[in-house]
Each structure stands twice: as structure tokens, then as C-alpha cells.
Simulated assay, not measured.
Amino acid sequence: MLELHDVSKRYGDRPALDAVSFTVGDGRLTGFVGGNGAGKTTAMRIILGVLAADSGRVTLGGMPLGDVDRRRFGYMPEERGLYPKMRVLEQTVYLARLHGWAPAAARRNALELLERLDLGERVNDTIESLSLGNQQRAQIAAALVHRPEVLVLDEPFSGLDPMAVETVQGVLADVAASGAPVLFSSHQLDIVERLCDDLVIIAGGRIRAAGSGEALREQHGSERWELLMNGDAGWLREAPGITVVEFDGGWAVFEAETDAARQAALAEAVARGEVVTFTREHTTLAEIFKEVVL
């Protein structure tokens, strides 16, 4: 388990992080979301030891995090950091060797990983000759080739097409399934919501919300219901205990003050005509993000 405890960092008079605390659980994918300048990259660099915190501490398994521990980490920075003239396989094997892997094992693991990331046909291409999306996949391979016990990724889905996003999602899910804590930042809230077990929302260097998606919806979300019926659903606007959020002919999204109000609305809909669908609508991460940040 990776934990930050009251970590603070200032650049001159500007606070980048203000008593930041959160946990990345073993075997769990944790999404780290916030706007530009919110403090995500600073927090990640402190975890990796690239920056020193002004105060607070980072622990792994309850123990202070040191340089030896960080050798077991995988890290992908937002900026591209591979050698552009090196070939994809050569670069990936080289990084595995830096982590102590024997040549044959490094090559075997690199080939397997590159194939999994759909770079099998590009292993002899130079990094600079790849498309931006394939460069991003190569960067992810570089972070994973030594089979890290902790994984920290800064914007891993940037520049990826939908098929590549799905591929990378599967790879990251496998890493978490092996028991590794996985922390990644992303501006793509739909991907974070779909992939992550836990979420950390940061703004202005402060943690605004943290926990599982279910817990955050329970704490910050509102319970909404979607009704689609054959006929006009405008009567819902006058139904007791009902607040209509969206409406279009026979379709409506509404909030109910009580279960009794919801049940009464459903019974009224059935009495007025055929109910096509009646489902609970979950609050999205984007809605929670706006609530806690704005």
C-alpha cells in the first residue's frame, strides 16, 4: 500500500501541495484527477523522489519510502522520455537491463509486452519514426518492462485512439490484478470512471475527494431516475416529491425526495401508458468533479 501523509510543497510563495494525503491500495487502480496546475505531477514526482516534499512523508507498506524501494517502481512521465534514435525493442530491453534483468529474460519479457501493446510489428522501428500514439505505447512498455511492484503513470492515455485505450486498459488491469498499487493521472474522466477502483480528486494543491467510485457517488452524488414512456411525461413536473432534471416528450430524468415518491411516480407512469424503461441513473465522475472543485 502506497500512502501520502500530509505532503506539502511550495514554489516560492505558491503552494503546489497543501497537506495532501491519500492511499493507493494494493491491487487497486487509483485515478488521480484534477485540472492543469492542480498538483498531480508534483505529487507523483515526490512519490518517485524526483522532488523533495517540504513536509509530510510517503510510505510503502507503512514504512518510509526510500531509494531502494523506488527501484521496484514503474514510472511514466507525461513528457516523452525515450531515446528517439533507439529501436523500440532495443530501448525496452535496455531499460529492463538497467533494472537488473539478464539479457535473455529482458528480451523475452520486452517482446511479450510489446506484442501485448500491439507494437509487435514495430519492434525494429526507431522511437522517432513511430506515430505519437505508438510512442505513447512504447513509453508505457518502458514503465512496465521490469515488472514493477508499484506503478505510477502521468497521463498514460494521452494521444491514444479508442482501440489503443482498450489495449492499455487491459494491461493496467493485469498489473493491478498481480497485486501492485497503480496510480495514474488523466484528464479523460470517462476512462478513469470506467477503469478505476478508487479516485482521488485534487484542486489547488488540496485533496477535495478520495475513495471508491461507489463511496464518492454516495457522498457527493444525487440519485436520479430515468423514465421513458409512450406518451407525454410532462406530468412529472407536478408530481409530489419529484424534481425533473431533464425532459423531452416521453423521456425524463428526475430526482425523488423519497422512495415513496419514486414509487408513486412509477405507478402514475404505468397508469398513463406503456413504460418502456425505468432505470436508476448513476452520477458521473464529471458531475462529482464539478461539485467538489467548482
Rank of each mutant, 00 (worst) to 15 (best):
V145F: 01
R45L: 12
I288W: 00
A138W: 00
G234W: 07
N109H: 15
R206V: 08
D248I: 03
V292L: 03
T258I: 04
Q169G: 15
R70F: 11
I202F: 07
S21A: 06
V192E: 04
F22A: 01
D259E: 14
G133E: 09
V33K: 04
S55T: 11
L228N: 05
R80G: 09
T41W: 01
R262H: 07
A142P: 09
D154G: 10
D190C: 08
L151W: 11
F73N: 12
F73M: 13
R206T: 02
L216T: 07
A271Q: 07
M163W: 00
G211C: 01
L130P: 08
H5F: 03
G100S: 04
E291K: 15
R80C: 13
I191F: 06
F184V: 04
L266W: 02
G12I: 04
G35V: 05
G170R: 13
R97G: 09
D26Y: 02
A141M: 05
L2V: 06
G241R: 12
G31W: 08
G34M: 11
R137I: 01
G66H: 14
N134K: 02
T167S: 11
Q135Y: 00
V150T: 14
G234F: 06
E223D: 13
R194G: 07
D259N: 14
G133C: 09
G34F: 09
R57I: 02
Q188L: 13
E166W: 01
D248N: 14
S212A: 03
E193L: 11
Q188K: 14
G211N: 02
L89R: 12
D174H: 03
G12Y: 10
H146N: 05
E287I: 04
G231T: 01
T59C: 08
R72A: 15
L98W: 04
R116F: 01
A102S: 14
A176V: 10
H282A: 13
L95M: 12
A260S: 10
A209R: 08
V192W: 05
M44S: 05
A173H: 06
Y11R: 09
N230V: 07
R70I: 07
H99N: 13
P103R: 11
W101F: 12
S222G: 12
N124M: 03
A19V: 08
T30W: 09
G159H: 13
P148H: 05
F73H: 09
G204D: 10
Q139W: 01
C196F: 04
N36P: 13
T277L: 10
A142I: 02
V123H: 06
S185E: 00
A239G: 06
E128I: 00
R10W: 12
V200M: 13
V293K: 04
G250D: 13
I191Y: 05
V168H: 03
S158M: 09
L153H: 12
G231Q: 02
V253E: 14
D161S: 07
L153W: 07
A239E: 14
G81K: 01
N109D: 14
A141L: 05
L151P: 07
R122F: 06
I242R: 08
T277Y: 01
E3Q: 15
L119Y: 04
I47E: 09
R72C: 06
V88Q: 10
D248C: 08
D197Q: 03
V200Y: 12
V150E: 10
L113R: 12
G39W: 02
L60T: 02
G179P: 11
V293F: 02
E214T: 14
G120D: 05
V168Q: 06
L132R: 15
R45V: 03
D18N: 06
R272Y: 05
W225F: 15
